[in-house]
């Protein structure tokens, strides 16, 4: 007699596919928010598995800050082509040009919080009622309490005081007109789970995640890629370093780690022994103790 047990990666996969299928079934206009990072690539892979042999029955939305790594954009376009899925791009540059968003100034200026405007505008323009994303509860303390199905009011805001209880595998996606949901199918995955699953399933990733040589600037202990989007401060110098990325946000705010890990086995080994959190290099989280919580309330991912 066989042992009727599935391992933890298969259980997480099964849970995520169940949630993705619920989204497709319960909403009229769902989308997948695609950042080009490993978590949204994983989510796209799971969505493909959920509906095979049919194509993914909803479009991907990418909020382009204009500060993306070129590798991310190239990867995105190739993936969309391969899957035959529709891509919608929301542009932060456009929001700045037409006055909907105001560019930050100063050496630490970033377009991270400007994404909120473009995201909400794009969701509204396409009448999106459920936007799924690759956020995970282990990433950050405000996310530790996020539901799978996270209700947003008509202004796109998250109200942590008034979340719907979520029991068993019964997800309540009912809503009033104008409201929408954010849904997080990989809520229960950790960074290690993501990497192990990527290896197990042989999922392609942008080259940024693997060790490479790059011109960098070290600012407040964070290794940033030197690019046209970053203004050097006094006493800062550009150094060529051997690095890789653990997360992929905008070029001016995503911190790299010094690493020789150039394949998945080495990355998993590195993560198993690493002693800092994944978002430890994210300048956007360092702005305040509750930076993530504050942005989430406004409609950030």
């Amino acid at each position: 007699m066989s042992n009727y047990v599935i391992n933890h990666l298969k259980e997480l996969e099964s849970e995520a596919i169940f949630v993705i299928r619920e989204i497709a079934a319960q909403f009229e206009n769902p989308v997948l928010l695609f950042s080009g990072g490993k978590d949204s690539i994983l989510l796209t892979h799971l969505a493909k598995k959920a509906f095979f042999p049919a194509k993914i029955p909803f479009p991907l939305i990418h909020i382009d800050t204009g500060h993306n790594f070129p590798e991310t954009i190239a990867f995105r376009d190739a993936l969309v082509e391969k899957l035959g899925v529709k891509l919608i791009v929301g542009s932060v540059q456009e929001a700045i040009d037409n006055g909907r968003a105001k560019e930050e100034t100063g050496a630490d200026a970033s377009r991270n919080s400007l994404q909120i405007v473009s995201l909400l505008d794009t969701l509204e323009a396409y009448k999106v009622d459920a936007a799924m994303g690759g956020a995970r509860r282990d990433e950050e303390k405000a996310r530790a309490k996020e539901r799978f199905f996270s209700h947003r009011d008509e202004f796109g805001q998250w109200d942590p005081k008034n979340q719907r209880p979520e029991l068993w595998n019964l997800f309540n996606g009912r809503k009033n007109y104008g409201e929408h949901f954010r849904v997080f199918p990989i809520s229960n995955w950790t960074e290690m789970d993501v990497w192990e699953y990527i290896k197990l399933e042989n999922i392609d990733l942008p080259s940024l995640y693997f060790s490479h040589q790059r011109d960098c600037v070290v600012r407040d202990g964070v290794i940033l890629a030197n690019s046209e989007f970053i203004k050097l401060k006094e006493n800062e110098e550009v150094v060529n370093m051997t690095i890789r990325y653990r997360t992929c946000g905008d070029m001016p705010i995503t911190g790299a780690v010094e690493s020789e890990a150039d394949n998945l086995d080495k990355i998993i080994e590195e993560i198993a022994t690493t002693r800092t959190t994944e978002r430890g290099g994210r300048a956007d989280d360092k702005r305040a103790e509750t930076a993530m919580e504050d942005r989430k309330k406004q409609g950030y991912f």
């Binding site: 509860r137 282990d138 530790a144 309490k145 942590p160 005081k161 979340q163 809520s187 229960n188 950790t190």
Partner: peptide, 10 residues
């Protein structure tokens, strides 16, 4: 007094 809720840890 912001929120009293289930938190998930791993």
């Amino acid at each position: 007094g912001i929120t009293i809720d289930v938190a998930y840890r791993y």
